[in-house]
Amino acid sequence: MAAHIAEAALNHLPAKLLRTYDADAYFKEKREALDLWAAHLMSLVDGTASNVVPIRA
């Protein structure tokens, strides 16, 4: 994922010059990034993530 897409998904504003000339809102790209993040979080929650080690009680 491109850094400017991650920054846009976090609602960080780019430098003024970029804001002036790059009017794209990157809706599609932000949606894809947030869908990937949601899938990752769900794999952690439902226990299907392969790198999660359960804590013994």
Results as ranks from 00 to 15, higher is better:
45 V>H: 02
39 A>L: 11
38 A>I: 08
11 N>T: 08
7 E>I: 02
20 T>A: 08
9 A>T: 03
32 E>G: 08
42 M>V: 01
11 N>K: 11
32 E>F: 07
17 L>S: 03
44 L>G: 05
23 A>W: 04
21 Y>W: 06
39 A>Y: 08
3 A>K: 02
9 A>W: 13
20 T>K: 06
44 L>M: 05
42 M>S: 04
50 S>M: 02
55 I>P: 06
13 L>N: 12
18 L>G: 14
47 G>F: 07
22 D>Q: 09
20 T>L: 09
5 I>W: 00
31 R>I: 11
9 A>D: 12
4 H>M: 09
25 A>D: 11
1 M>V: 13
7 E>P: 01
8 A>K: 00
25 A>S: 07
45 V>S: 06
20 T>G: 07
5 I>H: 01
53 V>E: 15
10 L>A: 13
7 E>L: 01
25 A>L: 10
6 A>Q: 09
4 H>K: 05
26 Y>P: 00
18 L>E: 12
19 R>K: 14
52 V>L: 14
9 A>C: 12
19 R>Q: 15
12 H>C: 10
8 A>R: 00
44 L>P: 11
43 S>H: 00
3 A>M: 09
17 L>M: 05
3 A>N: 04
38 A>V: 04
14 P>S: 05
54 P>W: 14
6 A>V: 01
39 A>I: 07
2 A>N: 07
56 R>P: 08
37 W>E: 15
19 R>E: 09
4 H>T: 07
44 L>R: 10
32 E>T: 03
37 W>S: 09
9 A>Y: 03
24 D>M: 03
30 K>N: 07
20 T>D: 08
1 M>F: 15
3 A>G: 03
52 V>M: 11
16 K>C: 12
37 W>M: 13
36 L>S: 11
31 R>C: 03
50 S>T: 11
5 I>V: 03
30 K>M: 14
45 V>N: 00
41 L>V: 11
57 A>E: 05
27 F>C: 11
57 A>L: 14
30 K>L: 13
56 R>M: 14
52 V>Y: 06
31 R>A: 04
50 S>F: 06
46 D>N: 01
55 I>R: 08
55 I>M: 07
25 A>Q: 08
28 K>M: 03
44 L>Y: 12
25 A>N: 09
45 V>P: 00
6 A>D: 04
12 H>T: 07
56 R>F: 15
12 H>I: 13
17 L>E: 05
46 D>S: 00
14 P>T: 10
46 D>I: 06
37 W>Y: 08
37 W>D: 14
23 A>H: 06
5 I>Y: 08
47 G>L: 05
54 P>V: 15
9 A>M: 08
57 A>F: 15
7 E>V: 05
6 A>Y: 11
3 A>S: 12
42 M>K: 02
